[in-house]
Nucleic acid binder design. Structure first.
Lengths: 222, 222
DNA sequence: AAAAATATTTAGACTAGGCTAAATATTTTT
DNA sequence: AAAAATATTTAGCCTAGTCTAAATATTTTT
């Protein structure tokens, strides 16, 4: 159960996992940029992780997670998201803050801790940003969330998740009383400007979302 | 609020704090032995901590914490003991395990976390081994616990704390249904053998404690 | 008070992770 | 298909923390 990876190695692993979701193969430069480090350092670490059978590496052709590495990564994600729930639900941190805070806690790899935390929190299905939490065996709960561009005018919907939970964007939402579970209605689409006018049911506030904003919000039709 | 110390530096700091409580001045060898490392490494670290104004160091004469260093140490102790309470009370870990587990968590130095944890746990006064938890300003709650050699035969008392909470000793206690809050009575003292016969009120079990055991248990007369 | 024992520090080397600069591969442009 | 641009790797050095062995201080013993 113990990963045998240092905190730094675990952070590289997470970065590779994240990039692989989007891109498939991960290049040295992508990884270096994601980690905010030099390509040379990334190459060094790639060799190390490759020696530890976490990734498959062919010179000049980028890296891919092995099954083993993918398992380690998903357990990291699990720990991260469970801690986020704890920090948010139990300690009352705002959803803008929990991501950064959980970055520290996720590396604590105590026997049984994730499972106990999971049980204690009541087996949450998703973290405060709506991201799904893998179960003990690494299975991600299936979700069927869509984006607003799949709706028609007058459709009602509920916010279910955030694609890229950077603090600025979360702050933008919070300031406008938006969050997971928030119920809205799509008033009108401006096809030319690529904007969406929506109405918050609870407060009868009306807002305009640009395409960039809309693409970052996962919803479910109600 | 951020200590600016690495995890390793923090561990040395804790060791110095612990040794200083018992000995006053802490020698290089003591520190090396406590840390399970060589005297040379201890010397190196002593220089580093001295440069960071955490300790006062004079060559060949050992070290002492500065006020600043003592503050850092006590906040570490606070985090450690709060996490122990969390792991024990909320996640259900046994008191033998929480010390080692908290060793990892205590280094997570997130803004506000200790205070929030403290509030969430209901401002506990002591950890699962009865060790007092410093408050936010570093004040240790005053306790007036004694050891059994201060009692007379037939005195009733309650277990309030453990001096040296190593897992083996805790296990010894657990196996005999002993723990913090447990009520007992001193039946007889064998002055020659230096043993104490005690009776557990709840179960009417009788036990014999050697001096070594007795010295490791903090009690309060009832 | 000199010798022996012990404690402490210095010197020099090793590993993990990082860097810059230079070398080499690959890809894109012309 | 050669030249230019870009991506990747290698080489060499840096810091943190560790080690062993050797040097130096201090303390204890005689």
């Amino acid at each position: 159960m113990h990963s045998g990876l240092s905190i730094i190695e675990e952070n590289y692993l997470k970065a590779i996992y994240k990039l692989q979701q989007m891109d498939g193969r991960v290049s040295t430069n992508e990884l270096a940029s994601e980690m905010g480090t030099s390509a040379a350092s990334a190459t060094d670490m790639i060799k190390k992780l490759s020696n530890k059978a976490v990734i498959q590496y062919e010179k000049y052709y980028g890296v891919q997670l092995t099954t083993y590495g993918a398992n380690l990564a998903i357990q990291l994600v699990r720990r991260h998201r469970l801690w986020e729930v704890f920090l948010h639900d139990k300690l009352g941190y705002s959803w803008e803050k929990v991501h950064d805070l959980a970055e520290e806690l996720e590396h604590v790899n105590i026997h049984d801790l994730a499972d106990r935390l999971d049980a204690y929190l009541g087996h949450p299905k998703s973290d405060p940003h709506g991201d799904p939490i893998p179960d003990g065996s690494g299975q991600l709960p299936k979700t069927d969330y869509i984006k607003i561009d799949e709706l028609r005018e007058r459709d009602s919907f509920e916010i279910k998740g955030i694609v890229d939970s950077d603090a600025k964007f979360l702050n933008y939402l919070t300031e406008r009383n938006l969050g997971i579970g928030c119920k809205l209605r799509l008033i009108s689409i401006d096809a030319y400007a690529e904007t969406y006018e929506v109405l918050i049911e609870a407060t009868h506030q009306s807002l305009v979302w640009t395409k960039r904003i809309a693409q970052n919000i996962l919803i479910k039709k109600t």
